[in-house]
Write a protein that binds this DNA or RNA. Structure first.
Lengths: 259, 259
DNA sequence: CTTTTTATG
DNA sequence: CATAGAAAG
């Protein structure tokens, strides 16, 4: 079972850069996208409805902003649109597809980098999301939460950790929150579980020479429930092409895809 | 004496397209620009202050909107900024440089194409500009009024005159106003005086294949006072490079440049 | 620095 | 269709 996640930074921009030429060659079972930045009526081109997938979009109310999607090779038994939080759901941040005993989620956590107000929104999301994760855990089935969590967990997860300790995305409170998710509650950072190497990033600023110098952050995750830890087979960050300021995170699982 | 006029559709865009590489080779005495679309503090690059010229900018209050400029090889004796009409002057539409017995003007008449409200503004400008022209004529010295008048005068001055009779820029009232300027008041359309050929345009829509098919309009003029009629020596519309959706209009006059 | 809007032409 | 600005990341 192969799952691909990508913050597209505009699905139409990613399309122009060849994402939909690349995708059919990935043998993906599920594809999770974040920051589609489009309303569904702007995606009438068949390009945005790739063959062999069942495609679901959840848009923000605001045009050109946020938005998540899931493409699934097999039709899900159920689709969950949003978290039941009207303020966050208006921003198109959470889409869940249930396949038998497995849920795959495409989630886009708020960025706090643009203002103190947006950082407060991010903290509010974190405050509410932890109980949500605990409800998921209590359900007793498998979860794979794919997406842009907008937090680098540890110093190994970004190039310049010292200078970023006061910047959104590597604040002590944000890191402590991820500690709780991974270390107390037992969720698994699938990429890091399989790859302990440094310099493994999924996002590079567009400013300066960040990409050329690999000055990046690992803020995109596949976070899996404890029962899937042993099923993590292979992990990869795809950097041969650039569809976005983020790179696709591709993970293979032994767990059979429920059909 | 050579005078060049161009609606730059953004002086920074025209710069990217090589306007300031081309300009030094033109032996221009005066250069008139319209739609600079920049505030002067955004033009600190020396590129925008070409050597061998005295450079004057008149900006609109609104960022990125309208704005005119004059570059003069010799320093003018006097510079007139605006027409004394606060509403129009806030839009950066009129800059006059006086050299001895000659005034050279860079003028950008309002476009009416975006709304009925803007068409009303255009008509208001026309209503006030005719008395202004008569005041100029009464002064008894020479005038060369360069710029984008946003009106094609006669059917020969645009490709599709029949279908444009209800469109701003070729309305009967606008054409009649130019009739008054040229036929009653005796101002001279210098390009047409020297070149009676059809298909001589200075603006082409960016939509479709207007440029490739030469579906254009002649809406940029050098309008000269009657005493300069006999001094019109050579006229040209420069189309070898494209700096803008408008083309430079270059006219040589026998009248010696007053220094 | 980039994507996507919006206003304007 | 293109320029430039605004909002957001």
């Amino acid at each position: 079972m192969r799952i691909v996640t990508l913050n597209a930074n505009g699905i139409r921009s990613a399309a122009r850069k060849g994402f939909f030429d690349w995708l059919p060659h990935q043998s993906a079972d599920v594809v999770c996208l974040q920051e589609t930045k489009a309303h569904i009526h702007q995606l009438d081109d068949p390009l945005y409805w790739p063959e062999d997938f069942h495609c679901y979009y959840l848009d923000a109310d605001k045009k050109g902003y946020s938005g998540v999607a899931i493409y699934a090779r097999h039709p899900p038994d159920m689709l969950v649109r949003g978290l039941g939080w009207p303020d966050m759901d208006a921003e198109g941040r959470y889409l869940e597809a249930r396949f038998g005993d497995l849920s795959v989620v495409s989630v886009y956590l708020p960025s706090g980098s643009s203002s103190a107000e947006r950082q407060a929104v991010k903290f509010t999301f974190l405050d509410r999301f932890l109980p949500h994760l605990r409800e998921c855990a209590a359900k007793g089935h498998h979860y794979i939460l794919c997406g842009d969590w907008n937090i680098a967990h540890k110093p190994i997860d970004l190039k310049n950790w010292r200078s970023n300790q006061k910047n959104s995305g590597f604040l002590p409170e944000e890191r402590a929150w991820l500690d709780t998710v991974f270390e107390r509650d037992g969720w698994v950072d699938a990429f890091r579980h399989a790859n302990p190497q440094p310099d493994q990033y999924t996002w590079w600023s567009n400013r300066g020479q960040a990409w050329a110098k690999n000055v990046g952050w690992r803020i995109d995750y596949q976070v899996v429930s404890p029962g899937l830890r042993a099923a993590i087979r292979a992990v990869a960050i795809y950097k041969d092409q650039r569809f976005s300021d983020h790179a696709p995170l591709i993970i293979d699982y032994d767990h059979p895809f429920p059909v």
